[in-house]
C-alpha cells in the first residue's frame, strides 16, 4: 500500500511540474520578449502585469470548436497532439532534480537512452499531424520536421554520448553523482551542440522552419483548432522545460552548486533550468529564422563535426586521467 502511495505521489508531483513549468516559461516568454522589443506585453489578464494571460488563453482555446478537416485521416489527426505532448511528460519522470533517489520520479538505468528516444517520439506528433491533415502546407511542415529530426538527432545523441563516456554510465543520477566542476569547460562544446540541436528539435526560432508562419502558414499545425492546437503549443513549452532540464543535468551539474548542495539541490536544478529557458527565449527574440538549407548545413557541417571532436576530446582526457 505504501509503495502505491509513493508512486502515486511521485506521479502527481511530476504531473504538477509538467502542467505548471511550461506555463511559467510561456508567461516569461510573453514578458521577456515584449520587453526585449520595447513593449510591455500582457498587462490586463489577472490584474497584476497580466500574470494570468496563459490561463485566459487556455480558457479561450477550450471554448473553440474542435474542427477536423473532411479530407483528414481522422484518427491520426486527433491522436497527433497527444503523441506530441506525452513524451515530454515521460521524459520528465526520469529527470533527477536533486541528489538521492527521493528527488527523481523514477530512476531509469539507461536514462540517456530512454530520455533521448522518448524525446524523438515527440517530433513524431508533428509528423503525424502534417501527414494526416491532408493539406499541402501541413505536409510541407511535416516533411521539414522530419528532415530536421534526422539532421539534429545525430549531434544531440553524440553530445549526450560524450557525457556518458565521461561519467562511465548512462543513468542520469549516475552522471550527476560522477560530476565534477571541471567537466564544465571539458564538455562545453558538447553542451553547446546538445542545446542547439535540442532547440532545433523543438522547432524553436531560429530553427522554426517547419512552422514558418510567413511561408507555410503554421506547418503541421495549420489545420488544428481549439484544445488540440493548445496541446501542440503546450508541447513546445514542455519541450523547452525538458530540454533545459536535460542540459542542466547532463552538462551543468544539475543539483551541484557552489554551496548548499545537500538540502537545496533542487533549487540549483531549477535555477539552472530557468536560466537556460531564458536563453531559449533570448535566442528566439534575437535571431531571424534559418533557411531550410542553412538548417541542414548547420547540422551536418558544423554540429556533427563538433560533436565528434568533443567525443574524441572526452576519450583522450578519460584515458589520460584513468
Amino acid at each position: 500500500m505504501n509503495d502505491v502511495l509513493d508512486v502515486a505521489l511521485r506521479l502527481v508531483i511530476v504531473f504538477a511540474v509538467f502542467m505548471v513549468l511550461p506555463l511559467v516559461v510561456g508567461q516569461t516568454e510573453h514578458k521577456v520578449m515584449a520587453h526585449m522589443q520595447g513593449r510591455l506585453g500582457p498587462m490586463y489578464a489577472g490584474g497584476f502585469h497580466g500574470w494570468a494571460q496563459l490561463v485566459a488563453d487556455g480558457v479561450k482555446f477550450a471554448q473553440k470548436e474542435d474542427v477536423v478537416p473532411a479530407g483528414a485521416d481522422r484518427r491520426i489527426f486527433q491522436l497527433a497532439p497527444a503523441v506530441a505532448l506525452l513524451p515530454y511528460l515521460l521524459v520528465l519522470v526520469a529527470v533527477p532534480i536533486g541528489p538521492g533517489e527521493g528527488a527523481v520520479g523514477q530512476v531509469v538505468d539507461a536514462g540517456i537512452f530512454f530520455v533521448l528516444a522518448v524525446m524523438g517520439v515527440g517530433v513524431l506528433g508533428s509528423l503525424m499531424a502534417g501527414w494526416a491533415s491532408a493539406n499541402k502546407f501541413s505536409l510541407l511542415g511535416g516533411l521539414r520536421t522530419a528532415a530536421q529530426l534526422l539532421a539534429y538527432e545525430l549531434p544531440m545523441l553524440l553530445a549526450a554520448a560524450s557525457v556518458a563516456m565521461a561519467a562511465g554510465t548512462v543513468s542520469l543520477p549516475g552522471i550527476l553523482d560522477a560530476f565534477e566542476w571541471w567537466w564544465l569547460p571539458w564538455q562545453i562544446v558538447g553542451a553547446l551542440v546538445f542545446f542547439v540541436a535540442g532547440l532545433a528539435e523543438l522547432q524553436r526560432p531560429p530553427f522554426d522552419m517547419p512552422v514558418a508562419d510567413s511561408e507555410i502558414i503554421f506547418g503541421a499545425y495549420t489545420e488544428y483548432t481549439g484544445l488540440r492546437f493548445a496541446l501542440f503549443l503546450l508541447a513546445e513549452y514542455a519541450g523547452i522545460v525538458v530540454l533545459c532540464g536535460l542540459t542542466t543535468v547532463l552538462f551543468l551539474g544539475g543539483w551541484h552548486g557552489p554551496f548548499g548542495a545537500d538540502g537545496l539541490g533542487w533549487v540549483w536544478t531549477l535555477l539552472k533550468t530557468a536560466v537556460l529557458a531564458f536563453v531559449v527565449i533570448w535566442l528566439r527574440v534575437t535571431y531571424p529564422r534559418l533557411r531550410e538549407d542553412q538548417l541542414q548545413k548547420l547540422a551536418w557541417t558544423t554540429l556533427i563535426p563538433l560533436a565528434l571532436a568533443q567525443i574524441a576530446l572526452t576519450g583522450i582526457v578519460k584515458v589520460a586521467i584513468s
Binding site: V32, H35, M36, M43, Y287
Partner: peptide, 21 residues
C-alpha cells in the same frame, strides 16, 4: 555578429518600454 545581436536584445530589455497605456 551573433553576440552583438544578443547584446542588442538584452540592452533593450533593461530599458524603459515605449508602450503608451
Amino acid at each position: 555578429g551573433l553576440a552583438k545581436g544578443l547584446a542588442v536584445t538584452l540592452r533593450t530589455m533593461t530599458r524603459k518600454t515605449v508602450t503608451a497605456q
